[in-house]
Simulated assay, not measured.
Amino acid sequence: MSLTVAGKTVGPIGFGMIGLNNPAKGITTEEAIPILKAALEAGSNFWNGGRIYGTEDYNSLHLLKAYFSKYPEDVEKVCVSIKACFSTATATAEARAEQVRENIEHCLAVADGKFRIDVFQAARLDPDVPVEETIGAIAEYVEAGKIGGVGITECSAASLKKAAAVTEIAAAELELSLFTTGILHNGLAEACREYSIPIIAYSPLSRGFLTGQIQRYEDMAENDMRRRMPRFFPENFDQNMKLVEEVEEVAKRKGCTAGQVAIAWVAKQSKSIGTPVMPIPGASAISRLNENLKIVELTDDELAEINTVLKKAEVKGDRYPAAFMKFLEV
């Protein structure tokens, strides 16, 4: 299923930039730029970044400015999606119209004309602010030609419909993975189909559960943010690894990695949902990038097997710390 976002044709698998701006990993600009270049050369030209990825002094916006300063010829080849309007430090949404405008102005100032923000979205809606206010403020900048399109993320089906009544929604960034299938059952996927909104599926590898890099709780560094997420708590970890083991069995027979099976399963949802679904795995090394971007096709039998596993699987623990849970499905 071909995919166009904000007027740009994009490849079947996008690139999530959060890992390139993770202070715990300490990846420098000089190390990150070749990874982005490799992603583009491999056909992954939807780049998902954010003001909230990194620090105020160095986040996705600064990295993108550096990249496009070096490769200005790539500007039209890449579709850039940016999230802002949220403080991860205080777990507060900045969804009032004046806050949205401040965030967009800040992002445009950092971009400094070196690249275009093709999709802008509030990283979280505020339960106390009408979605029409938040979306309407973003739409002002689309109408003024300052950004390309309006995105939405982590919302309810009702809010998505309200947003679509305000303006055209270029994309809905929603969590979808073998560990997180909520949008298939809560009306969101159906609403995206109804309004022909492509789904940008973030965390398709379940924040690393399906990468093979962590087998035990102790495999995560002391400063790894996943230690704050209930699904990775010691009392939940071993139970959740049982699903990983089931996926690894499928991958072993198929001759690929569990991560590739996981990404393929997410992409396969395009057919059943009826609207394009683009997984956006991240990577902090070119070898991992190449693994994630290799197209693996699941047969109908393999898909049925995985779906049977999912029906029986019990995923334990919330996907975010308690302070962030109130912003989900707003």
Rank of each mutant, 00 (worst) to 15 (best):
D128G: 04
N223K: 15
E218V: 03
E235V: 09
T180R: 14
L178F: 05
L174Q: 05
I138H: 00
V129R: 07
M225C: 06
A163L: 07
N223P: 08
D238W: 14
E143L: 06
D219M: 08
T153Y: 00
T180W: 14
E235G: 08
Q215N: 14
K146T: 03
E235C: 10
V166H: 10
E173F: 00
R216V: 04
G208N: 08
G212C: 03
M220L: 13
L160D: 02
P127C: 09
A172G: 13
C155W: 01
R116V: 08
E222T: 15
K161Q: 14
E133N: 06
E173Y: 00
T211E: 06
Y202G: 08
P230M: 12
L178P: 00
H185A: 14
P198M: 13
I214D: 01
T180V: 14
K162D: 11
A165G: 07
G182I: 04
A189K: 02
R216E: 13
R226H: 06
V150C: 05
P127S: 11
S203I: 12
F209E: 02
K161W: 07
G113P: 09
R228K: 15
V150D: 01
L210Y: 01
V131Y: 03
T180H: 15
L125Q: 08
S196M: 08
N186V: 10
V166I: 14
F209W: 06
L243G: 00
D118V: 01
T180L: 14
E173V: 11
L210A: 05
R231P: 06
A111H: 03
E133A: 04
V110I: 14
L205V: 09
A189G: 08
L125Y: 11
L125R: 05
A122V: 13
I152R: 11
I199R: 04
I200Y: 01
V142D: 00
D128M: 14
E173P: 03
A158R: 10
A172E: 03
P130W: 02
D224L: 05
P198C: 13
A201I: 08
L125P: 06
L184M: 13
L243K: 00
G136N: 06
P127W: 12
N186G: 07
G187H: 01
L205F: 07
A111P: 03
V131R: 01
G136Q: 11
G136C: 05
A191M: 05
A165Y: 11
I152W: 08
E143C: 04
A170H: 08
A123I: 09
E246L: 03
I200G: 01
Q121H: 10
G136L: 10
I117P: 00
E133S: 07
H185K: 15
N236Q: 11
R226I: 09
Q121P: 01
S159W: 05
D112N: 14
L210C: 07
P204A: 09
L174R: 04
E154Y: 01
Q213D: 10
I200T: 13
E173S: 11
A163N: 02
L210E: 02
T153G: 06
Q213S: 12
I138V: 10
T180M: 14
P127F: 09
F115V: 04
G136W: 13
K114E: 12
L108R: 07
M220I: 15
E168D: 15
